[in-house]
Design a protein around this nucleic acid. Structure first.
Lengths: 211, 211, 211, 211
DNA sequence: TATGAATGAGAGTTCATTCAT
DNA sequence: TATGAATGAACTCTCATTCAT
């Protein structure tokens, strides 16, 4: 999954500088591809315009790299950490949510960038990027719903559907909270309350969907 | 809620042509404000560049009109049709989902446009537009969760949270389907299967959350 | 000097409306040819865009008509009133100044328009307009300096030069006053003081240049 | 009076190229702000459109710079050279006229540009530009009429008015000549005759106004 | 005559991309 | 590698002019 990136010209760049470029670019691309401005990126990264294009060729090339890199990050710092052997799907989703919150905290722009990229790739399909992106995305769902213990669910309930309900509920809650507290500071302060409420949803899901 | 629009210069335009402009613009703005190109809009609408700017003054003026118009449409063709008196919240959400599917069918770009507008207004606040937009948006949730019969839910379950689970489940399913079938043709063919599966989710929700 | 104008299409227009067009156009063209906007002219004149172009063909055609008409006005209401037989050149210049002030009062935009036209014709020569314009302009000077009684001047002073000094002094004073009081209201209030001071300059000129 | 200009982005441009831009722009703006076309400016200056806007941001920004620069030039190459201590006002005006002719020769568009700017700022006031402009303009008159030796004038003549007569006469002659010879080549050839005639006017003024 | 909606060439402005240094 | 001045195609917006009614 990573040859592409490892062999990229930019890997010869000073790592500290490279990180500045990647962060600046990911932040800026969170605005959307068209709205992102390469001037802002080089300013934030503290490099020259020429250097950016020396390494990435075009804006699209930069976007592709940032997208692949984001997929890579989400794989390394999220997907690979999911416990496949956990067969209690609600427990697994709970743990995935915690991992995601961690990820959000460490890389504030990452999930927003990927969400935006997802929407834009639907509108402006680019085969190469889309493929890369989708591969990563579908893994998350697959992992969540793989090898689940269907015997935990109440009789007569389709386990796959029940698992989806749990998935969408957790996503729904997370999304609704992000919308409500846009500021990072608030987010940190509210973290405790947030976790607690999330837990209450987990409890309801367990109570209603499980035996 | 509508004087603003009724008194807009464009209301003097031939209705059939006006619709072409509104549709072309809404479609194009679904790409996002920056990415949308007025050349494309006038080409799709079959009018000249000058005429577009004669009626809307600036690209932003056009965007504002399209946004208000979309809010108006969603109010007239969705929000105002929600049965407030329905106290069975799952039933109400089911009906809302049907109404939304209808809306999606009649105005394929409308919901996408508004979703994009929502994201962009958070990033690029414009007081006038935001206010207009939010007024409409919050009504939907309020209507869904207003005056619900909490006695229908199982003992010991927070009714508000349970209603949210139902809401997010229906949204989650809808979103997952839209993602899967991007093409309108497929959508129409799959409509029956889609409704049926949705009904199955409704049944699970009823079974698990209600007494 | 007037066949051109008398035979112009616009002469078939209702005179009251025609005057509105001419005034509106002259006012607007005082801004300069490029800055003048035909939309403003038709709005001020209370006619439609189509009608304006029906009568004048192009903006340039309108400009040409307005210019010729202004020349005509200045001839009829100023140049033709100059007393050729007055051989006391200072007296003649004094009377010309009075006539000019009258003209300014009756047609506030006329002199400004012609001054602007003069500058613009130098930059953007248009043979037809320039010829028309210059013919009128040079007449004023010629008339002022024609048949003057050189015996009135002190010995040893070139009469032509002395007359020029008088001419430029009166023009200089008038111009300096216009710059200082831009507003028409002030102009009217200050009229008395203005005339008196002008008279003082006349007295100095007489005292110093005449025997 | 000059920090504004010294710190302008354009000061980082190659001086030779900068001069081409300034000259091209001043020439073009002599037509008036609206009529001036940035395409012409970049063509004449031999630079690209993008570069012009990189340095000046907007057409108005360019105009402002050119205006301030012109004020600066007229200060450095004209106003600062006027001999304040010269109390013979006619002598002072004569020297000022010579300085002005020099200035006209070195920077043929400068005085025309400023004259046009003066008219346009009255019509379209822009506080920042106007202030800058007026500061420079009023200095010229003040300098001319400051500390003059009134004892030189004939008894019974208001010295201030007499000085104005001299000022307007010299301006009047200069203006009439500029009107007559629009072409630079002619101007050079006629320079001698021009100076001589001007001197004759000076002599008349001295003879008639002074004791 | 009279209208004003409609047109499109032209002007100002932005920004990804190049290239001499 | 690294720079940032320079480019020009693409985009938004304006306004003289036309034409169906």
């Amino acid at each position: 999954m990573s040859e592409d990136l490892e062999s990229h010209k930019i890997m010869t760049m000073d790592p500290e500088k490279r990180d500045r470029v990647i962060n600046a670019a990911m932040n800026e691309f969170t605005k959307g591809y068209k709205s992102a401005c390469t001037d802002t990126i080089v300013r934030e990264a503290g490099i020259s315009k020429g250097l950016l294009f020396h390494y990435f060729g075009t804006k699209e090339g930069l976007y592709g790299f940032i997208l692949k890199n984001a997929c890579e990050m989400i794989y390394n710092e999220y997907l690979s950490l999911i416990q496949l052997e956990q067969s209690d799907v609600i427990e697994k989703l709970w743990q995935m949510t915690l991992l995601k919150m961690d990820l959000s905290y460490k890389h504030p722009a990452l999930l927003d960038f990927l969400a935006k990229a997802y929407v834009e790739l639907q509108e402006n399909p680019n085969e190469e990027f889309t493929e890369y992106f989708m591969k990563t995305r579908s893994i998350a769902i697959e992992k969540a719903l793989a090898d689940i213990d269907t015997s935990l669910f109440k009789e007569g309930i389709d386990a796959k559907k029940a698992a989806n309900i749990a998935l969408w509920t957790l996503n729904g809650y997370t999304t609704s909270q992000i919308n409500a507290n846009m500021c990072m500071e608030d987010y940190k302060k509210e973290y405790e309350r947030y976790l607690e409420e999330l837990k209450e949803y987990i409890d309801i899901l367990r109570e209603t969907l499980y035996k």
